[in-house]
Design a protein around this nucleic acid. Structure first.
Length: 591
RNA sequence: GGUCCCGUGGUGUAGCGGCCAAACAUGCGGCCCUGUCAAGGCCGAGAUCGCGGGUUCGAAUCCCGUCGGGACCGCCA
């Protein structure tokens, strides 16, 4: 070993000890006569002192040394002279008086500073990710991620789970996201697919009698990127046999409640036990099924109040089966026309034709897009419904229900951001349950599973699959945290007949279903336990626990928005020979 | 496929028609300095303003295109 101690562990109890340290030069302060170097390793920073009268060799070597050089230092730990302790440093009570310095590897000046927490262009950070990861914030994030995964592994192991690896080379499932394909050398014209999740495999492990499975599983989806989406990402994939919805939810709730206390003690839970919302309730109150519960700003249905008011915009929407709902932007009555226009423009992105509003300034006259239809009684009724008082701004959307929900949900998030309503130290976990089992897809003209095609309907709703499939509820549950869906799961179908029925409902021809999922159907005939599971997203959870704005900050080597690794420059062209081995011809787009 | 935003020394910013062959901070190089810890002092090097075209007497600044990056929509069972 190059070191007897880590930089971070040294303490006044080590005073008098001869130590050997190795690490990176974090900073160097050359006073001419005496030189200080902050030596950094993963565990912390310690000050080493080179006094030319004690060791001319060490002092001379440190004259050469620059930031990020890798060095080894031998010396004696001693208390710092009184008055020169550094309370900002964990090791600030002591220092190491060096007797010998060995330069292990010099370093070029890095393209950005490692020892300072300053904004750097992300492209540059990604090109030099190995340097970026040396920076305190990134190394903290990577450590946090390790602690999260470690906690999960320990917790689940204690609860009788075993981690089983599943294949990365598997089979295409065209009904989900776009697959990443891997050509087969041995089977010309055939392809493996990288798993979008180990869904089928974990169910087959239940058939195999594993009963309690988990995996820190890499998943792959070839879709466009977002701040919370990468082409490859990591899920805690988990499955249990002989359980019902409640069992999974209780387990996961306990897991993450304890995890937060352990690895993010400075964060507070918004509510424990976690609130549960039905899908319908989430929609009614927040406009979406992954609501941020950290603040109120709830949607209110005002259709019954407004019906018959004579305001054409509202009446027309209602006549077409639409809704009228609103939000109370507390204290925003002084928004200018321009600010409201901005909100309106934003709302139009989501299909709303416009925004109706009532501004209620204190000491001034009310302003409204539909003032002349607002009788004193109607105004009062609206204010009562919206919980409004002078100073507030009421915003309304009248449209098809889906548009109303989407628009108001977006406005709610936007306003909360502007009004700083969301406490960044709060973790608002909640469950959303009772999802519709199927959603009607307009463009495909058929039913789509709202979760995935192995999700079980509520057993009491199975008869509805024949009579009124849209009314059936699924045994699905989503885990939501601060405006993000961080996990989804369900009780699965474990019966071949029911599975085939669902395949039929979503328009999978029996022969296609057998070709793609024959192994599942067959397995279900060999004694399959009732089972279910969930798959929380590790990246998103770490991102929120770390307080980061995107998932790339908690992934050591992420891809950029164009799904490129800018450090290694992947993807890249390959040798013709490689393509020939794989029986692949490249057909580039014409232009 | 679409919408919006950004691109100025190594890094982060300022400048947004002439005062700019570009300013500030930091970093970098040299010299001085024995108790600093974002050490300090002095000196110095470093950008044809992403690229191409256009408008103009004059462009970092305005326009068009292009490339790169980011946010979002579509997409993500």
């Amino acid at each position: 070993m190059y070191k007897t101690h880590t930089c971070g562990e040294l303490h006044r109890s080590h005073v008098g000890q001869q130590v050997e340290l190795a690490g990176w030069v974090h900073r160097r302060r050359d006073h001419g006569g005496i030189t200080f170097v902050d030596l950094r390793d993963r565990f912390g920073i310690v000050q080493i002192v080179a006094d030319p009268t004690v060791s001319p060799q060490a002092h001379r070597e440190l004259e050469e040394v620059r930031n990020e050089w890798v060095i080894q230092a031998k010396g004696i730990v001693r208390r710092r002279p009184t008055g020169s302790e550094n309370p900002n440093l964990a090791t600030g009570e002591i220092e190491v008086e060096v007797s010998e310095i060995r330069i292990l590897n010099p370093a070029k000046t890095p393209p950005f500073s490692i020892n300072k927490d300053e904004e750097v262009d992300e492209n540059t950070r990604l090109r030099y990710r190995y340097l970026d990861l040396r920076r305190e914030q990134m190394s903290r994030n990577i450590l946090l991620r390790h602690q999260v995964v470690k906690f999960i592994r320990d917790f689940l192991t204690e609860h009788g789970f075993i981690e089983v690896e599943t294949p990365i080379l598997f089979k295409t499932t065209p009904e989900g996201a776009r697959d990443y394909l891997v050509p087969s050398r041995l089977h010309a014209g055939e392809f493996y697919a990288l798993p979008q999740s180990p869904q089928q495999l974990k169910q087959l492990l239940m058939v195999a009698g594993v009963e309690r499975y988990y995996q820190i599983a890499r998943c792959f989806r070839d879709e466009d990127q977002r701040g919370d989406r990468q082409p490859e990402f990591t899920q805690l994939d988990l499955e249990m046999s002989f359980v019902e919805r409640e069992d999974i939810m209780a387990l996961v709730e306990e897991l993450f409640t304890k995890l937060v206390a352990e690895v993010a003690p400075r964060k507070r839970l918004f509510a424990s036990p976690w609130p549960r919302l039905t899908y319908r309730e989430a929609l009614e109150r927040f406009g979406k099924d992954n609501p941020d519960l950290r603040y109120d700003l709830e949607l209110k249905n005002v259709r019954d109040l407004i019906e018959g008011s004579g305001f054409k915009v509202f009446e027309a929407a209602i006549a077409q089966g639409g809704d009228v709902r609103g939000l109370n932007a507390k204290g925003c009555a002084d928004y200018t026309r321009k600010q409201i226009d901005e909100l309106t423009e934003y709302a139009k992105n989501f299909g709303a034709k416009g925004l109706a509003y009532i501004a209620l300034p204190k000491d001034q006259e009310m302003r409204s897009t539909f003032a002349k239809f607002l009788s004193p009684e109607l105004l009062q009724a609206l204010m009562d419904r919206m919980g409004a008082e002078p100073g507030d701004l009421l915003l309304f959307v009248a449209d098809a229900p889906a548009v109303v929900f989407e628009t108001l949900a977006r406005l709610r998030v936007l306003l909360a951001e502007r009004l700083k309503l969301a406490d960044p130290n709060l973790l608002a976990f909640c469950w959303v349950i009772d999802f519709p089992f199927l959603n009607w897809s307009e463009e495909e003209q058929r039913w789509d599973p709202s979760h995935h095609l192995f999700t079980s309907p509520m057993l009491e709703d199975v008869p509805l699959l024949d009579s009124d499939p849209g009314k059936a509820r699924g045994q699905q549950y989503d885990m939501v945290l601060n405006d993000y869906e961080v996990g989804g799961g369900s009780i699965r179908i474990h019966d071949r007949q029911l599975q085939e029925k669902v395949f039929g409902l979503i328009g999978l021809e029996p022969d296609v279903a057998r070709e793609r999922f024959g192994h599942m159907l067959e397995a279900f005939e060999y004694g399959t336990p009732p089972h279910g599971g969930i798959a929380p997203g590790i990246d998103r959870i770490c991102m929120i626990l770390a307080g980061e704005p995107n998932i790339r900050e908690v992934i050591a080597f992420p891809k950029n928005q164009a799904a490129r690794d800018v450090m290694a420059d992947a993807p890249s062209p390959v040798e013709l020979k490689q393509l020939e081995d794989l029986h692949i011809q490249v057909a580039l787009p014409a232009d």
